[in-house]
């Protein structure tokens, strides 16, 4: 064999696999284990809730959804919880989402990049980390207090769904601002420059180029905000939601807005505090309803997100 043929053989041999890469295999196993752990927790929770809750639906059917929150477990339902949660989400949707979006547009597109702007941005991030009970206190002082001052609510106590919805709106506002800001920041500057290059004004560039490109990210913020508004309980405890049974009777929409209210998580929380074991099943059934409502709200937002993504 010539020396070059030997060299070639050595190089060929060096390509052969030599044993297992232990570290890589261990790391991969660890990753899979973490995934398995998260999934297990989720599955156990879901199965437990379904096992407890589904018999309620089997026995009562839609009756559970349309009955009021009363103290007899065989007649209690979640209708006021659904109404209250839907109203809270609607109030959040028409207040926090537009205000948050416009704040984000101002901060990202219009505000000068100076110390004040950066200070405000940092503090909006901090606000997103403030415990929700603090927002509850704010809602109690600000919204419930104001409505009480105006003599609105049952006996003028100010504990109305509008107060709860606005409290929830202040809670999700920072989340909305942050996600919308990030969506706007992710729009490449080249698109803005191209717009300016053909003589578009700042408003036209923002409205016709930047916002459409940012819609998927903005809708992610909407999903997060609405899910949070549906699931949070602590702020509503303070902001006047009714805990425990009550009868709301026949009320039209306006009366509901200015009347006593509760929300799904409040109803569930109330039932878990009851001593009779039947309420455990009711709580589980309530959780199923809450999950369904949350998934439905998210599905709507995801649908719109996908639609906008496909359009370009």
């Amino acid at each position: 064999m010539t020396s070059s043929a030997v060299a070639a053989q050595v190089r060929r041999a060096s390509l052969q696999r030599t044993g297992v890469d232990v570290r890589s295999a261990v790391f991969q196993g660890l990753l899979a284990l973490c995934l398995l752990f998260s999934l297990t927790v989720l599955v156990v929770l879901l199965v437990d809730v379904l096992l407890r809750g589904l018999p309620v639906f089997a026995a009562r059917g839609a009756d559970f959804l349309t009955s009021e929150v009363v103290s007899q477990p065989d007649r209690a339902g979640v209708v006021q919880g659904i109404q209250g949660s839907v109203l809270v989400v609607l109030i959040v949707a028409v207040t926090a989402i537009p205000i948050g979006l416009m704040t984000a547009i101002y901060l990202e597109e219009y505000a000068p990049d100076n110390r004040l702007t950066r200070f405000i941005s940092v503090n909006i991030r901090n606000l997103a980390g403030v415990p929700s009970i603090v927002y509850g206190l704010l809602g109690l002082a600000l919204f419930v207090g104001t409505f009480r001052g105006l003599g609105i609510g049952t006996g003028g106590n100010g504990r109305i769904v509008l107060a709860g919805g606005l409290t929830m709106a202040t809670l999700v506002l920072p989340i909305m601002i942050i996600t919308a800001s990030e969506a706007l920041r992710a729009v490449p500057n080249a698109i803005r420059e191209a717009g300016y290059g053909v003589g578009a004004s700042k408003w036209q560039v923002t409205r016709k180029l930047v916002l459409p490109s940012a819609v998927p990210g903005i809708l992610t913020g909407v999903v997060l905000s609405l899910s949070r508004a549906l699931g949070e309980t602590a702020p509503l405890i303070l902001a006047g939601a009714v805990l425990g049974s009550y009868s709301s009777g026949d009320k039209d929409f306006v009366e509901q807005l200015f009347g006593a209210y509760t929300a799904l998580p409040m109803v569930i929380f109330g039932w878990t505090k009851e001593s009779a074991p039947e309420f455990r099943e009711l709580a589980a059934a309530g959780i199923i309803v809450l999950l369904a409502v949350t998934l439905l709200a998210n599905a709507v937002a995801v649908y719109f997100r996908n639609r906008f993504e496909r359009s370009w």
């Binding site: 490449p188 080249a190 698109i191 420059e193 191209a194 717009g195 180029l209 459409p212 490109s213 370009w312």
Partner: peptide, 8 residues
């Protein structure tokens, strides 16, 4: 521009 930047 330097990099082609059509609108989406």
């Amino acid at each position: 521009f330097q990099k082609p930047n059509p609108f989406p």
